[in-house]
Simulated scan of single mutants.
Amino acid sequence: MRVVFMGTPRFAVPSLRKLAASYEVALVVTRSDAVRSRGKKLEPSPVKEAALELGLPVLEANRMTPEVLDELRAVDAQVFCVAAYGCILPDEVLTMAPLGCVNVHASLLPRWRGAAPIQRCILEGDAKTGVSIMRIGQGVDTGAYCAQGSCTVPGKTADELTDELAEIGGNLLVNVLPTLADGTAVWTEQDESQVTHAAKIAKSELRLDSAATAQDNVRRVLASSDAAPARCVLGGKPARVMHAVCAQDGVPHVEAGAFAIMQKCLYLGCSDGCFEVTSIKPDGKRAMDSSAWAAGQHENKGTWELLA
């Protein structure tokens, strides 16, 4: 089976690798090189890097121009597979291949349609999430799905969940393609009454707040990223909390808006208790274990607050 694969970020790489191991990937379409980290140099997308490593032809495209459409037609693929490509596909692309165009979406549709399903499921405290293999339609993630796989959410960071879901999605995609070819795929229309939307995360949503619950603050840390970090003002200085967990039973009470260092552990007080910070990055310094940060403090207690 000849396949065109479209994807850009790390999440899409396992799908590409698994497709390349089982099918003929005739073309990989990804977004153009861009400034993707704190440096100012242009960097290839993770999908481009993986495609070149696999010896696959790559087409960089940020939109579907007439020239791009001509190249897609010339490939004469049987199916198009998409995973977080980041470009709106016109109807002409969706119907170009005989078996259509399927998408690897990181949620159990119809829950969490949209741009940030992984972060949203963490912030909402979902017990489980997953991946759906779906048809791409006119609306955002509105198409029917033919396969789903799931995993648990609690305690996992966005990066950890992304990697787990990426593997699940790649396996589902490879297994689904034969059912598209022989017509045995069973499509389920989404229940519109169960839809939730996963809007892009705003930086302000992940700021830590002593007026929130300890659980909510921990979820903000787990959902955070370089693009939207979990930050606060700790002891009068801004910092990013890199990792945190809910405090164990038996930890002494810490007032909301206060921090306490106990047995080299750092606790931040919230509206209903406290949570433990296990890794922290003060502005202008490297990330460090909270015990290392605590060792540099003159007092074992102080205050923390919302970053303005």
Rank of each mutant, 00 (worst) to 15 (best):
L208V: 08
E189R: 10
C121Q: 04
D33G: 08
N300I: 09
L172S: 13
K264W: 13
V102A: 10
V28M: 06
E60G: 08
I122P: 09
V254K: 00
G302P: 13
M242V: 15
P229R: 03
R111V: 04
L161M: 11
A61H: 05
E305K: 14
G236W: 12
A260H: 05
L123N: 10
I118Y: 02
D159C: 11
G284K: 07
F275A: 00
R219P: 09
W187K: 08
R31V: 04
K48I: 10
L56W: 06
L109V: 03
T95Q: 13
A287H: 01
M134N: 02
T162Y: 14
M64N: 05
K203W: 15
A61W: 02
L222S: 01
N62R: 11
A239V: 09
E299R: 10
K237W: 14
L56V: 02
G250F: 00
C121M: 05
R10A: 14
K281G: 11
S150W: 04
L266S: 01
T152F: 00
Q248S: 09
V277C: 05
G143Y: 07
Y267I: 04
C81P: 03
L180S: 06
G302F: 14
A147M: 12
V153I: 09
L266T: 00
L165Q: 12
L173S: 01
A287V: 01
T129N: 02
T303P: 06
P44N: 10
W293G: 02
G250W: 00
G7Y: 00
D91G: 12
V13W: 02
A223W: 14
P229G: 05
E53N: 13
M96P: 00
H298E: 15
S210T: 07
P178I: 07
E164V: 05
M6W: 02
R73C: 02
I136A: 10
L72M: 02
D209G: 08
A256H: 05
A144H: 06
A147H: 06
M288K: 12
L208R: 05
K285F: 12
C146Q: 15
R231D: 00
L208D: 07
L123F: 10
D226P: 03
N62G: 13
V131C: 10
A185L: 14
S107F: 00
W293V: 03
G114F: 06
E299K: 11
S290I: 06
N300F: 09
T303R: 12
L27N: 04
S15W: 00
R73M: 02
V25T: 04
C87M: 11
C81A: 12
K200A: 15
T188Y: 12
S279A: 15
